[in-house]
Amino acid sequence: MNSDIILNIVRFILLVLAQVLVFNHIDFLGFINPYIYILFILLYPIKKENRAQFLFLAFLIGFFVDLFSDTGGVNAAASVCIAYIRPVVLKFAFGNIYEYQIIKISNTPIGQRVVYLIIMILIHHLILFGLEIFSFSNILSILKNTLFSSVFTVFLCLLIIPLLRKAKS
């Protein structure tokens, strides 16, 4: 239990720093940046009783990324939203196993994992770019940004998830 808390704190700090110092400056093809900090939300231990704490931490990580990248509150809003809908998406992606509260994302079959990642990341990016650009006349640019960045983020997340797995003792 204790090591779980420490692991999450370390993960929180590392992901924020990696996001603002490295991944915000990739500019692939000029505008595509991955948002890998949401791995914190995607991989947060699945337990029903500490829902409020999870929502708060999701808000906090989005808030810190906003603080560093001068984006107001768009990352915080998107993070809180996907944190809130996560149980629904988990149930949709993993079906009944989720009910037993025993799954770990890094041990799930690749197909279900990809579905889970794609749904969560698409929703996150849509809210993120929708709020950031915030105009109906630029709806095409919102969709374009969402699509391309999502592909990039999903790809990177699939690569990073095995790296973040705790070493088995």
Partner: peptide, 14 residues
């Protein structure tokens, strides 16, 4: 509450 807080921050930055 958290969502509205972040929306307040967002619209202030607009």
């Amino acid at each position: 509450a958290l969502l509205s807080l972040s929306l307040v921050f967002t619209f202030q930055s607009h």
